[in-house]
Design a protein around this nucleic acid. Structure first.
Lengths: 367, 367
DNA sequence: GTTGGCACTCTTGCCTTACGAGTGCTAATT
DNA sequence: AATTAGCACTCGTAAGGCAAGAGTGCCAAC
């Protein structure tokens, strides 16, 4: 059933006022905004209907109304006006991200910090990496007991390791191993480096010192960490600003859930969504029990090397979705521009964002 | 002035009881412990004296007594009994640290997490690195537009970078540059790589593509990050357990101070202290304003490669110093054993720890 | 020097009361 | 038929007052 235009206006007013004040909002307050040209009595009637439709609820009789998750969902999906960032804000973000190229992990962390600062909510960043293969080995002979393994991956990352040996090797052995590994262990994935294969290589190299095993182990390690998703969380303490987390126990529950980084990966990563698309998960739409009365807003960005990353914030369901979405979107676009390989839309386009959410039965709908 | 033995006993009892309950402790409660064989009236007299000596204070007339920072200092320096960890606890720590060798940053983070879990306070870990020089360059030619720079430092860390060029180079050029850098840029510190030197090298290599500058820039970057202290903080939310942080504003102030990692470096790093030595900074002994009514307990460990690391926890002044010191000491010893180069004392010795603190005028004294 | 006793203080919890915001309903109005 | 004004009612919150309890300081006795 489609809501009447007036109901929509009233619902939007309730949500916005509640977001602003964190207090249940009454009929009078809505009438006072002046957007509606009807009396508080009329609004009372409408409010009563919105309650019975499930969009609003009352903490107790004779209190004002508070949006339900369904109410927020409706607001976010259909009612909310897209916010434009002020020039100061966009400038602050651009400045915050900086221009220097940094190690991806560092940049993600900085971006998270920025997102947290700009929104006053805890922020999370996350980068999933696609499977990679090894494209090249280099073994650098240092001295009889030392050499360096340098491994380059198909996604252009390079890893190295310094190996100290308890025994002596000569340079020719290291060279031979290098050639061998380049011949047999490039283009393979982690699973293909089986003990059998390693053993075969060991014999081929006439290696009785276990060097082959060391190199192979490092190759496996590099491949596995290359695929590992990285997650960062920043600004947990921001939660304490929010009136809904004045109860330290409640705050602690959510914070310890969040800071146990592993859980971040429970997020719906599978469908990362496209550029300029913001996902909003409201209260019970979250799978994790601990997030059932919080909301998560996520933007996705192009992290280069065929990686997609996620940046988002967590807050109470009473969250300033509109502002947060605009800011995250801008930050994500900024990240894409800095990290991404492909051509990006110019910054001016960032505000035309698509907001995508999930309604309570898990389906995806679009505004 | 030396306190009478009975005063010492009473002071210790007050501190311990207060640590346990977080409630001001009265004369009756102390008499009830049975350690003293005198009545509550006598204890009252002694308490009054301890107050006038500055070791205790009363939140208000007719409330029990609470230790002052000076009282804690006395307790930690002279009164506190060294705690022995139970076999379960030592086993838990050993298990927590694991045996696998990991990247240092990762291990520090894990150790911090463990310290936080074991003590129920936020934990910080920190590794200061001594200045290093570059001991070796390797340039790996990939194709006409790509090569890898591998830099090995005097402290045995190795860093690399993949360079994509907008122009073509041939392999001999890369080789020439490698030889040149190994000849002129090894053994030098960050400051010695000046624009003048780079320019000279550029001419010597007949490099008109700016490759010399790229490599030199990377060398500088590696040197500077190698010296950078790393700091991690984990378990902020644990603060919320503590009654003294039930006030969200207070909790937030400290947490945001802590999570802004830079501040960790304000700690008295200069004198890292030796093995098996625990430093305790109580309330106003901390330099940072934000820590004036919190305490910090720090252990130091041998992080290998001539590095010393710090691991510590932050909590209210009403902290279980004895337990925390024992646990941190054991964790630090465990880290030293895993990371350290030198020979370590066997785990059994860990409990004989020395506690070192600073009294209020900043001098260092030893117990 | 130690102890029992006692009056005094001050916080804490609890109860009661008063207030006010907000509702729901009814009857009048457009 | 929708809107509005009016009004009684509900319920949470803040304020005041009261009693209880914990703890002290002091005095006199041991």
């Amino acid at each position: 059933m489609e809501l009447s235009s007036r109901k929509k206006k009233i619902l939007a007013a309730v949500v916005e006022e509640y977001i602003r004040t964190a207090e249940p909002v009454g009929s009078k307050a809505i009438a006072a905004t002046g957007d509606l040209k009807c009396s508080s009595a009329t609004i009372r009637n409408e409010l009563a209907e919105l309650v019975s439709l499930g969009y609003l609820e009352q903490p107790h009789t004779s209190a004002g109304r508070v949006p339900t998750p369904l109410g927020y969902r409706m607001y976010v999906s259909e009612l909310m006006e897209r916010q434009e960032l002020s020039p100061e804000e966009t400038a602050a973000i651009d400045r915050g991200l900086g221009e220097r190229l940094q190690e991806t992990g560092q940049l993600m962390n900085d971006a998270g910090r920025l997102a947290s600062q700009m929104t006053n909510y805890p922020a999370l960043t996350l980068a999933a990496r696609p499977a990679a293969t090894i494209s090249r080995f280099d073994l650098i002979y240092i001295d009889a007991n030392t050499f360096i393994i340098v491994v380059m991956l198909s996604n252009d990352t390079v890893q190295n390791k310094l190996v100290h040996l308890p025994v002596s090797v000569d340079q020719s052995m290291i060279q031979k191993l290098g050639t061998l590994f380049n011949a047999h262990f490039t283009g393979v994935s982690e699973e293909e480096i089986t003990p059998t294969v390693i053993h075969a290589a060991e014999r081929a190299a006439e290696d009785n010192l276990g060097l082959t095993a060391v190199i192979a182990a490092f190759a496996i390690e590099v491949l596995s960490t290359a695929q590992e998703a990285q997650a960062y969380l920043v600004g947990e303490s921001q939660l304490l600003h929010q009136p809904e987390f004045r109860d330290p126990d409640k705050a602690h529950r959510l914070m310890s859930y969040l800071s146990d980084g592993g859980h971040l990966l429970d997020l719906p990563l599978s469908d990362l969504g496209g550029e300029n698309e913001i996902r909003v998960l409201i209260g019970p739409e979250n799978v994790a029990e601990e997030l059932k009365d919080s909301s998560v807003v996520i933007a996705s960005y192009d992290a280069g090397d065929n990686m997609r990353g996620l940046i988002g914030v967590v807050g109470p369901t009473r969250m300033d979705y509109s502002k947060v979405a605009a800011k995250l979107s801008f930050i994500a676009a900024g990240l894409s521009r800095r990290l991404g390989g492909g051509s990006m839309p110019p910054p001016g386009l960032d505000n035309k964002l698509i907001i995508k959410g999930e309604d309570s039965n898990g389906q995806t709908e679009e505004s």
